[in-house]
Simulated assay, not measured.
Amino acid sequence: MIGRMLMGRLSLIAMMVVVGSLSAASQGTLSSWTRDAQRRVVKIYGAGGMKGLEAYQSGFLVSPDGHIATAWSYVLDVDPIVQLDDGRRFESTIVGFEPALELAVLKIDASDLPYFAVESESSANWGDPVIAISNLFNIATGNEPASVMQGSVASITKLDARRGTFKTPYRGNVLILDLIANNPGAAGGALVDARGNLIGMLGKELRDTATGVWLNYAVPAAALRGTIGDIIAGRKTTAPVDTTPMLARDRSHDFTSLGMVMVPDVLESTPAYVDEVVAGSAAQSAGLRPDDLVLLANGTRVESQRSFRKLLRTVDRRDDVNLTIQRDSEILNLVLRP
């Protein structure tokens, strides 16, 4: 961790050296573009997951009406608090998410906000200078601007090119960066070009399981555009659970019948974490493990244990249950067969 923090500081120093070498006019223009981009980046505070990890990350505004794109992670186990560049804090709601892209869209009750236009085609090329803007290490608090790091695009490649050594569900092209953006709080931040235009979303902390090397990358904005638009327009949502049972209660699934023991349900919004798996049960046969977090059940978002339980009561005991779960940094699809 110390080494990664040191590298991050070195990148910040490198940015100052680069900016210092520019003409006064160019330096002023770059500073203005960077500051405009910072106003479009937000700080997100939520949950720390089962392992007490950092409960903060980054996001960026994608509409003037308060829609925010960010990385899907354990921080969003609860509806998070969003803090804008000017210091204002808002409660947010999760409008929708796409596990395959590790993307989530939040909404705050605000309007006339500065935002990034998400282009349909990527303008990033190898060697292009870039600026990463994020809530790195939660250094910026209150109305302080988000942290800034300068670097370049080292390469553009598919994330699964290493044959599965990186545990992530995303399988598209990524921008490999030569700056140390793979640190707590940076996930979901904005990667912009030298003129402050959005070109990508900073990825989560990702480590090569074969070599132990940390990967600094961003998902191209063009890969996110369609899904962000669908979620905002309501064409792709994680609709709330229908709490009206469709079938008699004695014919519906529950945790016990499927062989799952959940963590203690002590709060109204206790996440659907699996505590134990019963030997010989449907859950064990499906490959479910302790500490798995249930994200979707039959395509519907699982907001809490209580919503999960209500959803199971609408499914006949004779029918399969399709689950999307998060296991560490992996997103997996499992089928529980009674």
Rank of each mutant, 00 (worst) to 15 (best):
G3K: 12
G8P: 05
R9W: 13
S11N: 15
S11W: 08
V18C: 12
S21G: 08
S23C: 07
T29W: 09
S31L: 15
R35A: 13
D36E: 13
R40N: 10
V41M: 03
K43E: 02
K43L: 08
A47S: 15
M50A: 14
K51N: 11
Y56R: 06
V62F: 10
I68Y: 02
A69N: 03
V78G: 07
V78R: 11
P80H: 05
D86W: 03
G87Y: 00
R88I: 11
S92I: 05
A100N: 13
S111K: 14
A117E: 13
W126A: 08
P129C: 11
I133T: 07
N138W: 06
N138E: 12
I139R: 12
P145N: 05
S147F: 06
G151S: 08
S152W: 11
S155E: 08
R163I: 06
R163Y: 10
T168P: 02
L177K: 01
N183A: 15
A187N: 06
A187C: 09
A190T: 03
A194G: 11
G196Y: 00
G196V: 01
L198A: 03
E205F: 02
R207F: 09
V219N: 03
A221F: 05
A223P: 04
A233Y: 06
G234L: 05
V241E: 03
T243K: 14
P245G: 08
R251S: 13
H253Y: 02
H253N: 09
L258A: 09
G259Y: 01
T270N: 09
Y273E: 04
D275C: 06
D275H: 11
S285M: 13
S285C: 11
G287D: 07
R289E: 14
D291I: 08
D292H: 03
D292E: 05
L293A: 04
G299Q: 06
G299E: 07
G299H: 06
S307K: 10
R313H: 13
V315C: 07
D316Q: 10
R318T: 12
L332W: 04
L332F: 04
N333D: 15
L334C: 11
V335D: 04
